[in-house]
Nucleic acid binder design. Structure first.
Lengths: 191, 191
DNA sequence: GTCTATAAGCAGATAGAC
DNA sequence: GTCTATCTGCTTATAGAC
């Protein structure tokens, strides 16, 4: 309701972007401070527990942004195959054009933190569950039973996360386009 | 042929393990030095360009180790569906039992370096291509034409990398077991 | 080729004025 | 709530003895 972003939110927004693209350990506090335009002391007032506390909020924000994005795309097409393919192809185009590299995936944060921070691992786990559940809803609307919908959604989400990783390493969306194509094969088994 | 590992190899072996599990930026030189039992000066003698040069060799070693592992498993079963499922289920069990967390994936390194080090990104890209080509070979042996084999292998590799990421975040191999199950669906279209 | 000592800089975190 | 100055420790990297 108030469109003026407060200092705390600016920290979280900046951190969300930097952690996603560069990673948690590659992003220093100085960089976050500089880009959010706020001083050091202000940071520790809002996040007394420091960098990890900020990262937790950043992961939650990333998760919500990505969830909105998936929901938006899936709503536009009633057929679940076409809808999910549209979502995957959209990501493929972002990566190919190097247009937007944020709010695509939290895989980097998940892999960086699973062995070193239990609370950040849990946040990433929750994010993945939320993403999967959006696909589950879409598949159940199309008449697929819950158990099958869950299993397929988990595989689709795995395929997307892995294809993003390989596409980024290759600087080319081909792995994502290939994944989109196979969605129809995976989902055709239950009609 | 000489089974005595020299200093340089010990650096690479240690780095390969630490970079895979903790990540490139989370692993300090001191930690690598301590675990390889070699002093600082020795390191810069063998790797004049420093940490990035070591990482390049570490990625190459990780790639070769993972390639051998995939080849070994795929050789044991002639049916490509069963063989690939066996490989995925093996990884799922490692993660579930927290038995071995190394030589499973290079996704973390790929995501950490794609935007910051062109030479490490290229090394990860090559690694992914090598992994995919092993699956391509297996599918072509089963009579699938090259183009189709390549497309399916890319999707399978994406699915595996993504399922590893989500499984690690959840501390549970379910995403990998679900992926293994869907391999038969993906490959059944061409018989 | 191997090792130690140390440089130079940046990390995350804190104290305390305002 | 905001800001500056600073502490401690760790980072990568180098110099030079052996």
């Amino acid at each position: 309701m108030n469109n003026k972003l407060d200092t705390r939110d600016r920290f979280i927004i900046t951190a969300s972007r930097l952690f996603q693209v560069q990673g948690y350990h590659a992003t220093g506090l100085n960089e976050i401070l500089k880009e959010s335009g706020a001083p050091r002391g202000s940071f520790y007032y809002h996040f007394p527990k420091g960098k990890e506390e900020l990262a937790l909020e950043a992961i939650k924000l990333s998760s919500e942004t990505i969830q909105s994005d998936i929901k938006n795309t899936l709503e536009k097409l009633s057929d679940p195959i076409e809808a999910i393919q549209a979502q995957i192809e959209k990501i493929a185009e972002f990566i190919t054009k190097e247009e937007r590299m944020q709010d695509l995936s939290i895989s980097l944060l998940a892999l960086e933190t699973y062995s070193s921070s239990e609370c950040l691992r849990e946040a990433c786990k929750s994010a993945f569950i939320s993403f999967v559940n959006i696909y589950v809803g879409k598949l159940m609307q199309a008449g697929i039973n819950e158990e099958k919908a869950h299993e397929l959604s988990l595989v689709i989400q795995s395929m997307i996360e892995g294809a993003i990783t390989i596409s980024l390493a290759q600087k080319d969306g081909t792995p994502l386009f290939a994944a989109a194509k196979q969605v129809s094969v995976l989902l055709s088994t239950k009609y």
